[in-house]
Amino acid sequence: MDNLKVAATERSPEVDFDFERGVLRLRGESYPEDASTVFGPVFAALEGFLADAGRRAIEVEFDLTYFNSSSAKALMNMFQMLDNAAGAGAAVTISWFFAPDDDTMKEFGEDFSEDLEHVSFKLVPVG
């Protein structure tokens, strides 16, 4: 399958999904009018990868500085999808980056990771 690369816009994050290496990274801010236009292609690529990859490892990096509530919902769906894949045998690692003085992003990382049962989750302070 092809890699997925989407440049950041004013209100949506950069998406970089390297299928070869099994690395998916989201970076930037996310408050688009319609979260499904941003996250729809990511979900489709992730589903394709997970169906293809079987028990291959995947690393997902969330390097986000702000997102709105509808993006938060999409992110929660991604976490659930990844945890299900990990439960089925894929080696899934999630890294959640946040600036040390940014309590909001840190708390979101903690919130999202609370339900994870199978994924290896890292909260990573940067900068």
Binding site: A35, N68, S69, S70, A72, K73, M76, Q80, D111, E114, D115
Partner: peptide, 25 residues
Amino acid sequence: KAYYKEQLREAPEEQSRGATIGLIE
């Protein structure tokens, strides 16, 4: 905070296009 997490997991209500989660935020 607990209500927010509960709503994050829920499917969106019909016609609301995410209004509930926005108000909780």
